[in-house]
Design a protein around this nucleic acid. Sequence first.
DNA 1: TATTTGACCAACCGACCGTTCGTTTTTTAA
DNA 2: TTAAAAAACGAACGGTCGGTTGGTCAAATA
Lengths: 214, 214
Amino acid sequence: MKLTQGEKSERSQGAILQAALRLFSKQGYRGTSIREIALEAGLSTGNVYHHFPDKEALFTTLLGQYWQAIEQPDFPFNKALAAGAFPDDLEALARAAEESVRIYRPYVDLIYIDVVEFEGTHIRKFYTGMSERFSSFLNHRFPGDALKDRMAPGFHPNTALMLVSRVFLQYFAVEILFGVPNQFGMDTPLAMAEISQILRAGMFRQEALPPGKP
Amino acid sequence: MKLTQGEKSERSQGAILQAALRLFSKQGYRGTSIREIALEAGLSTGNVYHHFPDKEALFTTLLGQYWQAIEQPDFPFNKALAAGAFPDDLEALARAAEESVRIYRPYVDLIYIDVVEFEGTHIRKFYTGMSERFSSFLNHRFPGDALKDRMAPGFHPNTALMLVSRVFLQYFAVEILFGVPNQFGMDTPLAMAEISQILRAGMFRQEALPPGKP
DNA sequence: TATTTGACCAACCGACCGTTCGTTTTTTAA
DNA sequence: TTAAAAAACGAACGGTCGGTTGGTCAAATA
């Protein structure tokens, strides 16, 4: 097979990034050397520096890939949102969260790596922007007061969306990344059902709500 | 001042661990060298190896300290639980979560370091045991069906306790460790109030609950 | 066809790593 | 007072790190 120069370059860069992602997600940033990356990518260390200015550029490029994937409509969690899983089908949202974490697992690792080894520098803006992204989604999806009329009073609908997203995504981060099965003391589908139930209708019986709260 | 041999040893070990905690939490495990730790502790590198077998022992010892602190009754979150914050005063639980993360911040960092640099090996049992610890707390605190009678049907009371704990602790981990202020698009006290409201009474108006769910 | 460009590699650099070890200083016990 | 033990030191070891250099060779360009 004959490869044009541009194809060769692209293929090498892809191999480098792929290897870097695999190794970073397993060993962390400082725990992974350029030599390992080059070896796994099947080329020399010098060549890595031909395609990328330094080690950190590998990391930030990978974070950029994840950033882009997260905003794509075919990102599992976005797909579930677009399909109307919120607010009625929280279980579907939970399944989408699981799929998102499972498929993008090595990328999710990068977030934790950034917190530990870069003091959260790169991913801070991602967490900062999450609320605004959800908010603008809700405004487009539920114009007017259609959603607010179905919601209980005392909170913004966006708080509910943020809450359920965080709960589900964190649950599967702990299950998949941390490697903890049955963290709630029951199997995952049951835990998802019970959590969804609480988020929908609250933990108290209606007649047993504590007094003095709005 | 004259120090007995045991006191000297204890003081040095303490200085080493304190320095290691500070540096690990800021730079990660591999990003911190024994030389740095020894320098910050004010003694020689050789002496570090006199008190600890290797670098990893520093890390596991610190995790052990955290483990022990978490089980102590004066750990802020435990104190709030013992004071009866669950299930009625979720806001108090939120404040206790904030205090727990703020005071033990460098130790909380160790958890993320373990996930990134040790594949979660050391902290897995901590997450695994959390549900069981809460469960036995509930059994002692609310014998019989006293709690279950106030709770809505469809979930174990322990699921509710796990859920609120995880939500609050994660919120402040993101705020304090990740460095993200106002992650829900509003100030923290308001976010805590809104989240508590949803956990108490659910996100739907009573008459607008989606059909087909238990 | 002559020349330039870009992909690539082996060898190398200085810095730093975790750890070892011979030695010195301080405390303890006889 | 003295000998053993513990605490502390710091140079040195073998190795790895991120990054650089100088060169080869095929593809693009003219």
